[in-house]
Design a protein around this nucleic acid. Structure first.
Lengths: 199, 199
DNA sequence: AATAGTACGGAACGTCGCTCCGTAATTCAC
DNA sequence: GTGAATTACGGAGCGACGTTCCGTACTATT
């Protein structure tokens, strides 16, 4: 292996000289663009190439892959979270609000290839993506759920975390399978969640 | 790269000499054992080590990873498929039969770590695991569904493929997340599927 | 005994997420 | 202005993955 290891400046190659790369925004834009074309699972190297930086730079700003994903989608998740209370105020009924919000969420997940799949934190609480989604959206989903349920709903009812995660799971592989209709299944799940115990 | 490539018999090392390794059964047993301890996503090398063979041997018998998984679980999938008609005959109502069968299926998926996750065929029809599950179980699920639905169910009703895939997706990450209750969500989904359009 | 056929192990390959480190750009002290 | 300290950078390298490939060693056939 008598090779050339550690030699990246054989030629003083200009690099992106001078420009201090004002922070992460350029990175986020590049990542967002790559996610659109290649899905959320796109290799980090591809994002780095698109942004014209090395992978090291990406990992300096976003220590793990999920954190980059969170950063890219933070605005949209935030918008989705904020839509919850608004829908509750504007809709004809709490159930309509819940269904509209859920449709919003599903549409968000389905249009971002691979996002739903990346959502389940594989182990422990160490997955920033899962943690962020759950932390931000469970409370929203919870209030909508509470409002839409019968007043004296039993304590045995399934909780918002389960509903949210169930929705997320149902959205997996929604893109890439034309005959799979995640939105319809999710609405059916909501029907089940809202149904009284008599069914 | 002037290295030692292609030299695996420096020493005539005894190998598993003589024994022609009567077919795949030993492989399947080893794989099943590893799947239990390390999940369905266990590295092929680990299975090979457990079986005392090289990875090449595994790939000779099962050209792709999904095919090995299919082979390991074929019996149980078969049993699940056969349980469908039996439950329909034995149960008090078609709905009870459907719910019992679904519970059976969920239990199967949930107890095999990672199986549900491995179930979505990533692309095209090339995933043997997805293809096998769908091909074997969709008809079964379809008859149960048909029996359990109102007689004149609209053509707009969701089909068995969607229901089955939805169940599979809901079971993802059921192990490894103590507060996630896949079985409950699946039953709620079934409630939604069975509910009349008036909800 | 010589040959053909086949099953075998595991090195090698390409790709992944992520780490590491030599170097370049910038800032600061004087 | 000059030199040292600090910071940001690119991309080679690492370990692990699924999968391929091929020299070898068994087994059958003649």
């Amino acid at each position: 292996m008598a090779d050339t290891h550690r030699e990246q400046s054989r030629v003083p190659r200009s690099r992106n000289v001078g420009r201090p790369r004002q922070s992460e925004q350029a990175l986020l834009d590049a990542a967002a663009a790559v996610f659109v074309t290649s899905g959320v699972d796109a290799p980090v190297r591809e994002i780095a190439a698109k942004a014209g930086v090395g992978v090291g730079t990406i990992y300096r700003h976003f220590p793990t892959r999920p954190e980059l994903v969170v950063a890219v989608y933070r605005h949209q998740v935030e918008a989705c979270a904020e839509a919850g209370p608004r829908l509750l105020a504007e809709s004809a009924s709490p159930e309509a609000a819940l269904r509209a919000w859920v449709a919003l969420f599903v549409d968000f997940l389905v249009t971002k290839h691979g996002l739903a799949g990346a959502l389940q934190g594989d182990n422990a609480g160490s997955d920033a993506l899962h943690t962020y989604f759950v932390g931000r959206l469970v409370p929203v989903c919870g209030s909508l759920l509470e409002a839409a349920r019968e007043p004296g709903a039993a304590a045995t009812e399934i909780d918002a975390y389960n509903v949210l995660k169930g929705i997320g799971n149902l959205c997996i592989s929604a893109s890439s399978d034309a005959q799979y209709d995640a939105a319809a299944l999710v609405q059916l799940l909501i029907s089940g969640v809202l149904a009284r115990g008599d069914r």
